[in-house]
Amino acid sequence: MNSDQTLTPQMLALPFFAGYGREDLQILSKHCRPVNWPTEFEVIREGQVATEFFLILDGRIQVQTSVPGRGDVTLQTLVRGDILGWSWLTPNASYSFSARTILPASALSFDGTALLRECEQHPRLGYLLMRRFALVMSDRLRHTRLQVLDLYAPPRTSGSFQALRKR
């Protein structure tokens, strides 16, 4: 499949595709395919061998982990323009989290294993792709750090005022 068929102008307008040359886009397009998922579809599963990544085109996806006693806990939601999965960047890796759709979703699925091979032969593409993923990862890390800060946590002095009203 060539880029003209797979990658529409709307897709190419997404920030993920910014900065690539024509040849780069052709290689990317060779290794991607459109996918559609219904609601409640498990896109990836924690522990599964990681060979793909996804560029979300539509819908909403929950990134989850399973916590004993609490079930599946959602850590983050992804929407149009977001990237799902970067474990494929390291050889023999497995996904660290699961992902499931909450709304019907569509995405571009990229064959990470094939792309890694292409990157060896096309260092420019490899460099651009790694830069793109570095950005994705640093954004995620920044957001996660803020989440960990628990900005709206009640002070130790607080608690349910409804108990006070009942007194």
Binding site: G71, R142, H143, Q147, L151
Partner: peptide, 15 residues
Amino acid sequence: DRSDASWHGHVGVVT
């Protein structure tokens, strides 16, 4: 910032 099973909206910080 933290969701539960009842929540189908966005999870993540406001930024």
